[in-house]
């Protein structure tokens, strides 16, 4: 289908929804670059799509600097550091990583973003459709996405600030959709040559979870349209106490809110932080420290931190 046939936001939203599921279902391999500021990194990825019987599996390998591999087999992740002669196996506590399904968030996205097709181009020698995702207000960033016309895989992504400047970007430079044999997920380093740290047992992860909670937290009024998606209580190894982690989303962007006892926190005053596209805002309230963190403008995290309260 020609890009000229993409006439409206409906098609663009369809592309977005297809993109989010394709990433999980497809077999693919390729190389991509990640650009943030003046720093460019290149990585190789091998991905085996999820089936009815198993989740997706993949391997990432750094192509710059010292050798580093990250291999994800369902919910176990292994890091291989040949230069250091070591490996690390850990079990993920959630399956959120590598899953970004927005097919059930279409209405929410359309409420806060204008999603439009912007023609076609070629990325990694593949035809792709450009989708512009512009925020309808100043509480969120925009995106310029390029989605593979045939496979719906996201081939490039730019995160844009309110002025339209690129904050960070990813782009495939080569991609292949041939079936990926499981053997391709193997590390290039013989496991026996490494010293392994194994934290993949269930015990080490369940011990991180808090058993009960006396105070519940909420972000009232869904500020800037961000609604609660996850509510997690955990023990912070840094603060050595229970913290509450709320995740809010607008369909595309997420903001985390962390609440911890003030006497355990080192953050002493109202503070904000900026790290590229990521902003945070912290405040104290009634003996607690509340910090909102997310890839959104600083005003948004400040607003969400201010609207967080106990109930």
């Amino acid at each position: 289908m020609s890009s000229l046939a993409w006439a409206g936001s409906g098609d663009a939203m369809s592309l977005l929804a297809g993109m989010s599921t394709a990433a999980d279902k497809l077999d693919y391999s390729g190389e991509f670059v990640y650009v943030k500021g003046a720093k460019i990194s290149s990585m190789k990825v091998v991905h085996i799509g999820a089936t009815a019987d198993s989740g997706s599996q993949q391997k990432l390998m750094a192509l710059d600097g010292s050798m580093r591999e990250i291999i994800q087999l369902d919910d176990v992740v292994a890091c291989v550091l040949p230069d250091q002669g070591m490996g690390l196996r850990e079990k993920r506590q959630t399956r959120q990583l590598f899953r970004f399904d927005i097919s059930n968030k279409i209405e929410t996205i359309e409420q806060y973003y204008t999603v439009k097709p912007q023609g076609a181009t070629r990325v990694a020698n593949r035809d792709c459709e450009i989708v512009s995702v512009k925020p309808r207000d100043t509480y969120r960033y925009g995106y310029s996405l390029c989605i593979d016309r045939e496979k719906r895989l996201l081939l490039s992504s730019e995160l844009l600030n309110l002025e339209g400047d690129v904050l960070e970007s990813y782009q495939f430079i080569s991609v292949n959709f041939d079936p990926v044999p499981a053997s391709d997920l193997s590390s290039g380093t013989p496991p026996k040559t490494l010293n392994w740290i194994d934290d993949s047992d269930e015990k080490s992860t369940t011990e991180m979870r808090a058993e009960d909670e006396t105070i519940k937290w909420q972000v009232r009024k869904n500020p800037a349209g961000f609604e609660l998606e996850h509510y997690i209580t955990r023990i912070s190894p840094i603060l050595k106490t229970r913290i509450t982690h709320l995740v809010l989303g607008d369909g595309l962007a997420q903001v985390s809110v962390f609440v911890s006892p003030a006497d355990a926190s080192a953050i002493e005053s109202k503070a904000s932080l900026n790290m590229g596209s990521l902003n945070s805002s912290t405040r104290k309230m009634n003996g607690f420290v509340i910090t909102a963190v997310g890839e959104v403008p600083k005003e948004t995290v400040a607003l969400i931190a201010d609207y967080t309260e106990a109930y």
């Binding site: 990433a23 999980d24 991509f32 990640y34 990585m43 990825v45 991905h47 990432l60 959630t94 959120q96 990583l97 590598f98 899953r99 970004f100 960033y141 995106y143 895989l153 996201l154 490039s156 992504s157 730019e158 995160l159 960070e168 990813y170 782009q171 495939f172 998606e229 996850h230 995740v247 595309l252 962007a253 997420q254 985390s256 596209s277 997310g294 890839e295």
Partner: peptide
């Protein structure tokens, strides 16, 4: 872990 927007396939 929960931030998916602008991610290249969640990578």
């Amino acid at each position: 872990e929960f931030s998916g927007a602008a991610a290249l396939n969640g990578l």
